[in-house]
Each structure stands twice: as C-alpha cells, then as structure tokens.
Design a protein around this nucleic acid. Sequence first.
DNA 1: AATGCGTCTGTGAACGTTCACAGTGAATGT
DNA 2: ACATTCACTGTGAACGTTCACAGACGCATT
Lengths: 337, 337
Amino acid sequence: MSDRRATLHDVARYCSVSYQTVSRVVNHHPYVAEETRERVLKAIEELGYRPNRAAQSLAANRSHVLGMLTFGIENYGPAQVMIHTEQAARAAGYDLIFVHTPDSHIESLRAALKRLLHWQVDGLILITPLTNISLDDVRSLSGDYPMVQIGIERGASVPSVGVNQQRGGELVADYLLALGHEQIAEIAGPDDWFDAAERHHGFGAQLARANTAPTATIHGDWSARSGYEATTNLLASGARFSALFCANDQMAVGALQALNKAGRRIPEDISLIGFDDIPEAAYLIPPLTTVRQDFAAVGQQGIAGLLQRIAEPDGEPQQIHIEPTLIERQSTAPRKP
Amino acid sequence: MSDRRATLHDVARYCSVSYQTVSRVVNHHPYVAEETRERVLKAIEELGYRPNRAAQSLAANRSHVLGMLTFGIENYGPAQVMIHTEQAARAAGYDLIFVHTPDSHIESLRAALKRLLHWQVDGLILITPLTNISLDDVRSLSGDYPMVQIGIERGASVPSVGVNQQRGGELVADYLLALGHEQIAEIAGPDDWFDAAERHHGFGAQLARANTAPTATIHGDWSARSGYEATTNLLASGARFSALFCANDQMAVGALQALNKAGRRIPEDISLIGFDDIPEAAYLIPPLTTVRQDFAAVGQQGIAGLLQRIAEPDGEPQQIHIEPTLIERQSTAPRKP
DNA sequence: AATGCGTCTGTGAACGTTCACAGTGAATGT
DNA sequence: ACATTCACTGTGAACGTTCACAGACGCATT
C-alpha cells in the first residue's frame, strides 16, 4: 500500500499507545493488558507491520543470525550437512547468512569470514572440512565468537560435531577382514580433507592391528572421474587385490566402471565398498556396500552445540561424535578360496 | 582486544578527524585528501574496524543483501544453481541470506518469505521450481520487491532465468527419432515441477510432430529409487519400447539397474537417455547419454537480471533462456532393424 | 579587492528498534 | 488513612551508520 514500511511508531499512533507498548507486544513481554495486546495485534495485522531486523540488531546488539561458511558443497556430504544445519537453525529461530568458499586458499577463507563478521552474527558455523584451514587462524580473525566446526578436527580448540570417520574406516577394515580379504586396495580422499584423513587413518590402523596393510593407496578427489582413473592406474600397476575401498561413493562409481572395463566381476572377483551411502548407491550395478553417515544428526547437534555455546560462551569445547553404520549390499562377498 | 567492536567514532577519535570523514574513506567517496585517507586507513587497520552492517542497512535503507529462497536442493540441479548464484552474488558485492523450504506447501513458502522480508533484502532470488507456487501469491506477500525466478514459468509476470527445458525435451525426441526409435517410453519428473512439465511437454510435442507419441509415460520423483520402480512397472506392464527417456540422471541410474535385472542390454536392446549430466553420468555402465544444462550461466544471468531489476525496477519482465546441449555417450544406439 | 568555484571537513538529524528508568493507577495490607 | 506492592504504560537515550547541509580554505577569475 504505502510507500514506506510501517514502523513501531506507525502502529503505535494507529492504536494510540506508545511505541514501547507495541514493542512489548511484538516481543511477547509480560505486563501488557490483554485488551491492549489485542488492539495492537490487530493494528499490526492491518498495517502489515514487520519488525526491521537491522534496527533490532543495532539496538539489541544481537542479530539472530548465524553465519554459515561452507566449502565443497558440490559434494554429497557437505551439501547434506548444510541442508540439515539450515533446518535446525531455522527451527531454533535463527536466520542464516551464507557464504561459500569456492577454493581452499586461506585468503578466500579470510574474505568469506570477513563478510560474515560484518554482520553481527551471533555465531559461526564452519563447514570447511579442510585440514589446511587452521582454526587458530579463524579464531584470530573472529575473536571469541561462538562457533562450531562441522567435522571433527583432532584436538581442535573449538567445539565440533562430526561423524566419527576413524570409526568408519575401522568398520570397513573389520568388515573386509571378516570376509577373508587379505589384499585390500584403497582409494582415499584428498589428503587435505580431514574426513578423508581420518577415514584413511582408521582404516589403516585397523588393518595394522590385524598385521596387514593396504596393498596400495591412491588419493582421489572425490569425483567419479578420479575413482575411475585411480582404479585404472591401480590395475595397470599390476597391484593384486581382492577388495577395494573407496573413500566415497562417487569414486566407487568410477571404480566400478574401470573394474568392469578390465573384465573384473564384482563381487566375484573383487569386493567394492564405498562411503556415504548416497541415494543412488542402492541402485548401482551391483548395489553398493557402503558406510552411512547420519548427516541430519550432525546438523542438529551442530546447531545445538552452537546455541549452547552462545548461551554460555565459557566451558570446555565439546566434540560430539556421530557413529557411522555399515550398510551391506551386493558389491562385497567373501574372498574366493 | 577490546570488549566492544570499534566504531566510526573510535576510528575518528583515534586519528582526530570527524566520523563523517572516516565514513567517506570507508565508502570510497571523493573529496578526501590523500594524506587524511591514509591516516584513516591506518587507523582502521590498527583498530580492526569493521562497518556494522545493521547500522548501514538502517541508515541507508538498503541492505546489500539478497534473499535466496530454495526448494529441493538435495537434487543436483537446484544445488548447482544455488552454488553458482551465490558465487555471482558475491562477485557483485552482495551477501546472501538463505532459507530453504523443506516442503512445497504454500504455508512453508509464506513463512520462508516472511523471514527474508524481515531483512531489508534488496532483492529476492527464488529457486522454487514448483508450479503450485503461484508467483502472484509471492508478489502479494513481497509487494514490488525486485526479484528473479530461477527456472522459467511460462507467461510469468516476473523476470526469470532458466534452461530452456522444452528445447531439452525436443533435443531428446529428435535424437531418439534420428536413431530410428519408434517406441519410446518416458519416465518424467514430478508433475508439479515446471522443469519436469516443460521437458515432458517439449518431448511429447516433438514426437507428435513426427506423428508418434510416447508408448508410456510414468512420473517419478527424481530419485534413483523411483526410476527403478517406474522401470520395473513399465517392464511388468508388458509395454514395448526400444528407448527410454528419463527426466533426470538419477532416475536413469535406477532404470539402468531395473533393465539390467530384467536382462535387457543397453544400448543393444534398449537405448537409455538421461537429463542433467551429473558428474557421475560418464562413469555409469554404460556411460550415459544425457542433456547438459549450464547451471553456471543460469546463476550468473539470474543475478545479472536481478541487479538490473534493482537498478531500474520498472520495465518489462525479461525471461532469459539458456540452451541445453545433448551429450552423446554409450547408452544409446540405433534401433536394431 | 571582491567574487566565485572546487576541494576538503565537520555538524545535526534521522533510520527503527531496545533498554533502563520513571510514572500512573488500583488493589492490598496494616 | 497511609504506605506498599503489583500491573501496566510512557519517556529519553542509545545503538552505528548515512544523508543533507554548512563552513573553511585555497586558488583562479573578474
């Protein structure tokens, strides 16, 4: 209707109370008479009044916004985490301002972080699964902002929530060993992602406990293409293996094709196992055995942790682990005798 | 260091100028002496001053924020659009506040929109590819906000940018007809997505021009699971077809498995074609023929359109089409004689 | 010597809200 | 009858910035 948005004062004038009373109604303060409340509510409705967030932030010195910094959301895991985090934040009454770093340079991160801090964000959610981004560096920029890191960095000084990737690696090792496999190859994720590093570490450590080791480890970049190329190289190198662990499902897709081209049957000749349980995993040929991560839980716990941090900024930074589960399908089988 | 963030006044006092001069430096106004500028810049650096966005919004009555409303970003297409849109917005100096609707009820949309409008967003980006969301309804809530709809709605009263889905459907029809296929089945997307509707429409129309029609059309929900089930039903129904068009690649993954289980060889017995060109498409078995959409272009044009709209709010709402391209791989072949 | 203009700087008010406080009645207790 | 409390309402200042204006100075033009 009108040119300008209605303000507290407009509403106040409209129903002859003070602006403060209107404010009280809006913020559900006690001590406003029922009759007045209704009159004000009606006026708000009629004038289409909406509080101005900028003014609220400024006056109250809190913004009701959380800053979300992401990297690599073209990948399934980070994207899932992001969606669920947004949901949890919204449920808690927070809006999200969202910056995506296109690359992992520390300078890009600084720039992204600066953008977020311009806003008086109440807290920071970091979905930046990279080891080369030192959280101390982040801290130096962001001061004592409440924040939560999604994905666990070992011994970090920041509260964090993530899937226990190390345990995931162990699950895979245990499972393949139980099937009788002794020669196991690995296509790991990029070294600078700590999810990848932890998976790799857990996997290797568990094999070591059984006095064995991966026959080969190649690092991919999460893409099907890299899985394909890694597998091709693996086969060309003459490495012998009866099982192959891919650190995510997309790389397993590529591996599947490479193995297929080389005439290896799955699971008869080679057992293949992925990680993530993307929705397509059950529909590959054969359906892919993989490790499922509960991203919804990560998102919820992440926000819960952050809100707690906002409420009481001191206290030991907690690290919350979500346990992964192995989903057995038909891409794995006992080793042929 | 200090408890409170530095303000304009702090900086001003620190180097004995007025706050207004500092403001001028920050905003790159002309008419500030080189010597002063440097002194101020130095002070800003030393005090770690950052402008308070809330105060800026409030005073200037513009926020430098764009509101982004998304639906269905668990799907490849919307997610890609979102990423590229964010990038383009950031490049243009805008921050993004981000709300995701978990479902397509109009009430969820209203709620989401309300959140965005609380902020004095300068413009609105709608990535809500649903036909049941009437843009007029959006307008009634958002008034004359500059906005851009990602994904073309036929005859919409709002500027929009999207891939020419209809043309995509035509490409598929042309291609399969040229290969000699006459009996073509279709697994379409959900009816209430306009991308799906347009693809379906273009596909059907082009077949009609060749005096034929799909032998069967089933609607899936974009997931591999639904592709699998649809294909299974198709086969069980006894429908005869030598080619199958899936409205996205994920459904094609499911179809692939269903056909495989039924002993149909691809492409020898049945040609399969998808849509989207997800990164895994080239690594399926066999590599999937599909239609590629340039999501980066969509994002960039979307932001460009919105910024133009913000600059001059009047003028005919433009609709920008991005043309899709067919990527031929090995899941399609000429019909067996 | 007076006028004008361009460059640079400062002042006051405004943006729309919250916070701290002060005030007003009416009901209650002594 | 008077103080005390409680429920409710209003006032002034502040948050950190931008905008519109005005002032001061130097230099060229008349």
